[in-house]
Amino acid sequence: MVSIDEIVKEVRSKGRIIGAPESLLVVHDSPQSDGTPYVKIVDGFCFYISTERGLEISKKKASNLDQILYFIFSRITKRMASDYELRNRIPHQDCRRIIFEKQISLLKKLDESWASRRQQEIVSTLINHPYDDEL
């Protein structure tokens, strides 16, 4: 059974590998009501839940430490990649090109399978919402 303490320890350890800011490495264990995810452990499963104004807006179920860490680091690396894109924006290019590339490179430093999983999610997103470089 995974504990909150174990998750926090792993998040901090892996966060150092990618140079994540401390502010992104906070693991909440109760609702924040502002959309910030928290981890809830019930009957051996971890749930990564976001609530906003008392309403659950997202809930992902993980059966092991690897899965919950993937959910957590998908969010952390997306935030880091978005910040990177803001500092390195290319005019008239869909900002997601830089964000997705940076996020994949950060995830690869942590776990190749996480990078592959995220890459598949990005491909799926782009099928329905292709790049628009005329922004």
Rank of each mutant, 00 (worst) to 15 (best):
I68H: 05
F45M: 14
K40S: 12
F71V: 01
S50Y: 01
Y70N: 01
T51I: 11
D66S: 03
I49A: 14
N64V: 01
V42Y: 12
Y70T: 06
D66M: 01
C46M: 13
Y48C: 07
Q67G: 12
I49H: 10
L69G: 04
G44Q: 06
F71G: 01
I49L: 13
K60T: 10
R53M: 13
E56P: 03
I72Q: 10
F71A: 06
K61Y: 03
K40I: 01
I49C: 10
S74F: 04
N64C: 10
F47Q: 09
S50Q: 08
V42H: 11
S74H: 09
S58G: 12
S50P: 01
E56Q: 12
K60Q: 14
G44T: 02
G54F: 05
T51E: 15
G54W: 02
Y70L: 06
K40W: 06
T51A: 13
F71W: 02
Q67D: 11
T51C: 14
D66F: 02
F73S: 00
K40H: 09
I57W: 07
D43K: 15
L69Y: 07
S74R: 11
E56L: 05
G54M: 09
L55G: 08
N64H: 04
D43R: 15
F47N: 07
E52T: 13
K60I: 12
V42E: 11
K59N: 12
K60W: 07
C46Y: 01
D66E: 07
S74A: 11
S74W: 08
I72E: 05
L69E: 02
R53I: 10
I41W: 00
L55S: 14
T51M: 14
I41K: 04
L55K: 13
S50V: 07
K59I: 05
L55V: 14
I68S: 04
L55W: 10
K61F: 08
Y70Q: 01
N64P: 00
F45H: 14
K60M: 13
K59Y: 06
E56G: 00
I72P: 08
E52Y: 15
S50R: 11
I72A: 12
I68W: 04
S63P: 01
N64L: 03
F71T: 01
L65Y: 09
F71C: 07
K40F: 06
I49V: 13
G44H: 02
K59G: 06
I57D: 03
I68C: 08
K40Q: 09
N64W: 04
N64Y: 03
F47V: 05
R53C: 12
G44P: 00
Q67Y: 06
D66C: 00
D43N: 15
S74K: 13
F73T: 02
Y70H: 00
E52D: 15
S74V: 06
A62P: 06
Q67T: 12
I57S: 08
D66W: 02
I72D: 08
I49Q: 10
D43T: 14
G44K: 00
I72Y: 09
S63G: 15
N64T: 01
L69C: 11
S74E: 14
R53F: 11
S50K: 09
D43C: 13
S58I: 07
